[in-house]
């Protein structure tokens, strides 16, 4: 049954167990650490990165006020690393708001005390896209490129010939443009012509 309820219905149904106690005027305190306390569904707890959905775009990193999320590139290994440190998190859920794929998942966990700091850190590593042309890694992850391909309309992809060009580094792209121009309608590009002519003369 629970799945059939809408989110709003769920919110309506949720009740704090202390509220009932409160009306009875018995002791209103709870022996807290010895019982489990459930936070309401609206509560902004520690978020969590779903590595299956994450594409490594870094939108969350740009939005995060306390630098709890950090992005690092390791071009040698071809890896982009997204690190989430719950100890720095201020639980504002800005990352949840800005995530384009819903990979930042909100939870209502509030007890994050631990005796090992490393328990608080989540690391997601993404493979960087590899440029076949120049043998270098791009700034983007493979998933980012897939995502771009998936969301852009067909016409735009065709218009900019993204199908072949998206997986290239900036330099490779420029080189390719030059080559293409040279092949097809070279004289339509004045600057190119000037350079070329100068070279010849």
């Amino acid at each position: 049954m629970a799945e059939s309820l809408s989110y709003t219905e769920k919110l309506k149904k949720w009740n704090r167990f202390e509220v009932e106690k409160f009306s009875k005027k018995a002791p209103v305190t709870t022996p807290y650490p010895f019982i489990d306390i459930e936070k309401p569904p609206e509560y902004r707890g520690i978020p969590h990165i779903n590595p299956e959905k994450c594409i490594g775009c870094g939108a969350c990193v740009n939005a995060c006020p306390p630098d709890a999320l950090i992005l690092e590139w390791d071009k040698k290994r071809g890896v982009k690393r997204l690190t989430f440190n719950a100890a720095r998190c201020i639980r504002c859920h800005r990352c949840v708001e800005v995530c384009p794929t819903g990979a930042m998942e909100p939870t209502n966990i509030f007890e994050i005390a631990t005796d090992n700091k490393e328990d608080l850190v989540e690391v997601v590593e993404h493979k960087l896209a590899y440029c076949e042309e120049c043998g270098e890694y791009l700034d983007f992850t493979e998933r980012q490129i897939e995502y771009v391909k998936a969301i852009l309309p067909k016409e735009i992809i065709d218009m900019y010939a993204l199908e072949d060009r998206i997986g290239l580094t900036q330099e490779a792209k420029m080189r390719k443009t030059v080559e293409k121009l040279r092949e097809t309608e070279g004289n339509a590009y004045p600057a190119f012509i000037l350079v070329k002519k100068g070279g010849e003369e």
Partner: peptide, 9 residues
């Protein structure tokens, strides 16, 4: 005192 203050005590 706790009971007067609605505490568990």
């Amino acid at each position: 005192k706790a009971r007067l203050q609605y505490r568990r005590g």
